[in-house]
Design a protein around this nucleic acid. Structure first.
Lengths: 136, 136
DNA sequence: ATAGTATTATACTATATAGAATTATATATG
DNA sequence: CATATATAATTCTATATAGTATAATACTAT
């Protein structure tokens, strides 16, 4: 699984570059993905959904803020926490992202039936739950 | 799968540390793993088996050489290539590694039957083959 | 009130990862 | 033989990732 992770990460970076998406890279794209689902989220929320450490997100979001992809919005009710929201600029890339995401899946799941994909998906979810139940 | 990769990478690092393995870290352990299988390999061989880029291995092997885990041995028949071999020091850790690897699988596959594990394994191999057939 | 604990995020630091360009060597071809 | 091409590894550079330590704020129990 580590190997697949590396190969798909590199392929994903390449696909983005080849299709002229130079506004963000692969890792940033994965963060944008969860923000497209829900525009306003705390850093802890994003950490949970991406399984990234919060320390990683601090610097990632710094860079993405510099690129004009996201903005930090202080929460007035809880001054410890900060909301992150995507900018209009980032929103414009969603369609292209979805298309490339499909291309990626095309490589990934070549020769798989829909049932097999669903099957694998359920295995992966179970593994994620195993980590969760270990408090990881 | 990216999420699982991150969680298991962090868990793997933690397991090694908790069990007092401070001679190498998780990423280095994965390289040692392929060298335990076959002691003498070129850097290109290792790159293929780990799906790491050769540039990554250059610096990884530098560090590991510094730690006394591996040695570079020039190939006398082909001066372009370099063999990498594990040291006796590294060999001593194999048993502990295997034990921790089992622990890791225990978390990963909790609640899985043997048949399900084999099933998932075959899906993952197919995905790896998909990348290979794309020349990735 | 306040002391202790939990939560949220960041700064700092170290390692991992990989692309582009480069160097050295080997192999193929005219 | 000379030149072009392929292969193996490295250097250089940039980003991603996460751990430890820290700071600020919120919550809880007395």
């Amino acid at each position: 699984m580590t190997q697949i992770g590396r190969l798909s990460s590199r392929t994903w970076e390449r696909l983005l570059k080849e299709c002229g998406v130079d506004a963000f890279n692969g890792a940033q794209g994965r963060i944008l993905y969860v923000l497209w689902e829900q525009e306003m989220q705390t850093i802890t929320d994003i950490a949970k959904q991406t399984s990234l450490a919060k320390t990683t997100l601090t610097s990632m979001l710094d860079r993405m803020e510099g690129l004009g992809l996201v903005e930090r919005v202080p929460d007035k009710n809880n001054r410890r926490q900060t909301f992150v929201t995507i900018t209009d600029k980032a929103k414009q890339y969603k369609e292209k992202y979805d298309k490339l995401s499909d291309d990626m899946n095309g490589i990934f799941y070549k020769g798989f039936t829909d049932a097999e994909i669903a099957d694998l998906d359920s295995y992966l979810r179970r593994i994620l739950e195993n980590f969760e139940s270990e408090g990881i």
